[in-house]
Nucleic acid binder design. Structure first.
Length: 320
DNA sequence: AAGTTACACAACCGCGGACCT
DNA sequence: CAGGTCCGCGGTTGTGTAACT
């Protein structure tokens, strides 16, 4: 059995709303409320519009306290953070930003924010020949719950690392199970492969089965390997720095530091959790590339907003 | 100045799920 | 419990305008 249409499509007006229609709708709702029935509303309000159209117009445009215009950096961070965590659930994201509508946020993401992130990742992707498709995968990994690799996609760590002399692959990649194993292994045995040069490197793992952000960082100054280890759908289960396990109460800070490192930060002391972007050194290129998986569970969302901060820093540096 | 392209935003569409009868 | 109705959501398309050639 087919579904009944919500309105008579032949007799309703479509397209942009006129001022007159706006004021009619506004006036009616202010006076009577929506009445809990959008389908009946247009007729009562004297509008030749579909109920859905009225609802959309009200919620996205006419409703009081709607905020239009530029998004602040804070809003950027919140959006990226939530997108990385929950994916494209715009209504949930909108609920965290007062005055913003899901449609607004969706449009903002699709037209501006996604590009902003792309730009932030460009130095890395340019150097390592990462395709546009792969960039998008990294940026949108959180919205994909598939455990399968994109056709033809190889683990990033196997694609771009010039040699083990310079870099250590964190392993991982697409697939169901073995990424955390190899990452644990990398965290435990990396020092011997460092070549003594100032080597800043991060890699990431797109683990289709609930894995999240994994950043590996190598730098002779601290000879540290940082990697997040995600279990299958369990989120950030353990976190290792320099091969040693970090206790639970320290995890948050170390986690955040690792994200900063992955994003190219080199100056982490004094660590300032309240203003993580202050830790960036603009002289260092952004070499971090990360992704957020979801699937059954774990995600690591901090990287995205760190990239935003970093890109903002780069932008403001460029202005000078 | 005119035509074309790119971009931003508004609006539409179809689906899934909640609720009601 | 099944069927019908409506709401809300997310993806997509349409439209107006700015930027570019």
């Amino acid at each position: 059995m087919g579904r009944a249409p919500c309105c008579d499509k032949a007799s309703v007006k479509k397209g942009p709303w006129s001022l007159e229609e706006d004021s009619k709708l506004k006036e009616y709702i202010n006076k009577n409320g929506t009445g809990g029935n959008w389908i009946a509303l247009p007729q009562k309000a004297g509008l030749k519009r579909c109920g859905k159209s009225c609802r959309l117009r009200w919620l996205n445009y006419l409703r009081p306290n709607i905020k239009h215009g530029d998004f602040s950096d804070d809003e950027d961070r919140i959006i990226c953070n939530l997108f990385a965590t929950i994916g494209s659930r715009w209504s949930v994201i909108a609920a965290q930003l007062s005055g913003r509508t899901d449609n607004d946020i969706k449009n903002y993401w699709n037209t501006k924010l996604k590009k902003k992130l792309m730009l932030a990742l460009q130095p890395y992707t340019h150097n390592h020949h990462v395709s546009k498709k792969q960039q998008l995968l990294f940026l949108t990994a959180s919205s994909s719950s598939s455990s399968a690799a994109p056709p033809g996609a190889a683990p990033l760590s196997q694609q771009h690392l010039p040699s083990p002399h310079h870099y250590i692959s964190g392993g991982g990649g697409y697939g169901n199970n073995n990424s955390s194993k190899s990452l644990i292994s990398a965290a435990g045995g990396s020092r011997g492969l460092l070549d003594g040069e100032h080597q800043l490197m991060s890699t990431s793992c797109l683990d289709g089965c609930g894995g999240g952000l994994v950043g590996l960082y190598f730098d002779e100054l601290c000879a540290t390997t940082t990697s997040g280890v995600h279990g299958q759908g369990l989120g950030m289960e353990s976190f290792a720095i320099g091969g040693s396990q970090v206790q639970e109460e320290e995890q948050a800070e170390h986690h955040h530091k690792a994200l900063l490192l992955a994003a190219g930060a080199v100056n982490l002391e004094p660590y300032n959790a309240a203003a993580p972007s202050s830790s960036y050194d603009e002289a260092k290129p952004l070499v971090g590339l990360a992704c957020v998986g979801n699937g059954a569970g774990g995600t690591s969302s901090g990287f995205f907003y760190d990239v935003i901060s970093h890109s903002n820093n780069l932008a403001s540096a460029g202005d000078r």
